[in-house]
Each structure stands twice: as structure tokens, then as C-alpha cells.
Design a protein around this nucleic acid. Structure first.
Lengths: 144, 144
DNA sequence: TTCCTTGCAAAACTTTTGCATTAAA
DNA sequence: TTTAATGCAAAAGTTTTGCAAGGAA
């Protein structure tokens, strides 16, 4: 089942359901942020989200954007990425996957799990277990 | 050849040589930062380095620590890591390797390249080539 | 009402920068 | 002496927080 169904008019309805499933009250701001982010798999910064909503005429504050993103992330609706130290990226695709990172442009591209296979991985240290694997394949322009 | 030889008294001498090889003037502050960082493979934040040097009685400013770390990184003497969004970590091991990351404690542990084997990797998008692979294996305490 | 959410501004943090002073070659 | 590095303080950028006001149940 795909979290990003292709029908376009009822994104709001699906967002509302997903928030309800998490016990998150669907306020106007939260719905707008969810509708933007969960419309398709993408990577957005807090600032981009704020700018996009403001451009669309929404009344949202920076604090609410951050609060909401942290709230969503804590409920597993989105995932926070640390690819460069400069700022956080919020990934609306929470299925396991990896990333290409174009260092020059900053672009992030999803890499589906089946495209990477590990034939060998180290055992986690005693007393610990693997929570997840973050794989970033850094890209540069081909020097032809 | 190991960048971290085990003789202890001449760390300074080796640092001086490594700076000279990069054409970096070996000032007092740079030597202290290099001696601390390059003494062994480790992961330190700018703040940790500053605190450690001050504790040892060195006269160093925060600006110089940052300037120096950036300078070292740009010459490939150290590597800057982005594992959590909170701050940058500076890795004195510049040989290719991966990391374990204990999310609870923040601890980073090196994973040597031979302990990971990829049997499948996606081709880089057209016009790009792989610059490097950042692999972070996130760990949590075992829930026994 | 009662509790939760929002917005604003200020604060907190990390990192960078401008500029006068100091140290290195 | 000439050039580059340092320290300090201020600035810049991102994220968090305190608190009064607003909205939902």
C-alpha cells in the first residue's frame, strides 16, 4: 500500500486520517503542512515549508512549522535527515530507503532498498542492536 | 602506513610534518589542535576541542578553532561528519571507513571498510559519479 | 471552561566574519 | 618588514522556548 496515492483532490482526507491515526489534532496549520509534505515523496527544509505555505496565503508562524515537523517526526509521519550540517531536511517518505546526495546542488534523491544489497555487515557491539542504516551516496558532476 | 604511529613523545613532530606537507604554517594554536586531534583516531566537536585546549592551559579562541578545523578539513587532514543535525563532528581518521552511531549516547565508532561489503549499488544518475559513501549504522540499547 | 495550539519575540546554539592586534617568516 | 594568523565581539543562520492570545472540545 502506498502512502502517496495518486488521487489529488483528497490529499487532505488522507492527511486527516493519518493525523487521526496518530492521535494528532488536525488543526488548520498541521493540515496544510501535512498536505504539502505528504502529497508526494520529497525532501523539504523548515524554511522551504514556511515559504511555500506563506506564498500560498497560509497564516503560519515559523515556530508552528518547527513544532509541527518535530511532532510529525516523533510520530513517524516524516523522517528528519542530517546530510549536511547546515540544516535539517524532512523526508515525507518514511519507508526504509537510502539517498543520493548531489553535493554541488544539495539535491537529495531516494534510493529504494532493493537497489542496495549488503553482502557483509559488522555485528553491532554487545548490548546494542541495529536501529537503522543511513546510507548517503555522495555525487559530484562527472569530470568528462 | 599508519597516520597514527604509536610513539607518544613525537606526536608534535609528526603533526608538524603533516602540516608542512600541506603547506600550512605550523602556528602554536594549529599545532595544539593537530596534536590533540591527530594523536589517535577520534571524533571531536569544535566545542570539545576548545574546552580540552583551554583545560590544558592553551590560549586559543573559538574563532581559531573553527578556522583551523575548516582549514584542516579542506586539506584532507581531518573529515567533517554530519551524523546528527546538532553539531559537526571532526574525524581524525581520513581513511575510508564507516560508522556506528549510538543514538542514545551520541557515541561514534569507526567501522573499517572490509567489514562492509556491497553486493549491489545503484548506478549514479547520468552526468554524475560517486564521490563517496557515507554509511551510518544507528544503534540502540538492546531491549532484552 | 479547560486544555491544546498558535504566533511573536526573544533566547539558545553553532558557526562565520570584520577588524584591530599579534606572531611568523 | 611584510604577510598571515589570532582573538574578540558581533553577526548570521537554524532551531527552541516563554508567554499571551486564540481556538477546539
Amino acid at each position: 500500500m502506498d502512502a502517496f496515492a495518486s488521487s489529488s483532490q483528497d490529499i487532505a482526507a488522507r492527511c486527516q486520517r493519518r493525523l487521526a491515526d496518530c492521535g494528532i489534532r488536525p488543526t488548520a496549520q498541521r493540515m496544510r503542512i501535512a498536505s504539502l509534505l505528504l502529497a508526494e515523496p520529497q525532501h523539504l527544509s523548515a524554511e522551504q515549508i514556511l515559504a511555500s505555505l506563506r506564498r500560498a496565503g497560509a497564516r503560519v508562524s515559523k515556530a508552528t512549522v518547527y513544532n509541527t515537523l518535530n511532532l510529525f517526526a516523533s510520530h513517524g509521519l516524516i523522517r528528519q535527515l542530517s546530510v549536511d550540517g547546515a540544516r535539517a531536511w524532512f523526508d515525507s517518505n518514511v519507508d526504509a530507503h537510502y539517498h543520493f546526495h548531489d553535493v554541488a546542488t544539495g539535491t537529495l534523491i531516494d534510493v529504494p532498498v532493493p537497489e542496495v544489497e549488503f553482502s557483509r555487515l559488522p555485528p553491532p557491539p554487545p548490548g546494542t542492536e541495529v536501529e537503522g542504516i543511513d546510507l548517503v551516496i555522495r555525487l559530484r558532476k562527472t569530470g568528462s
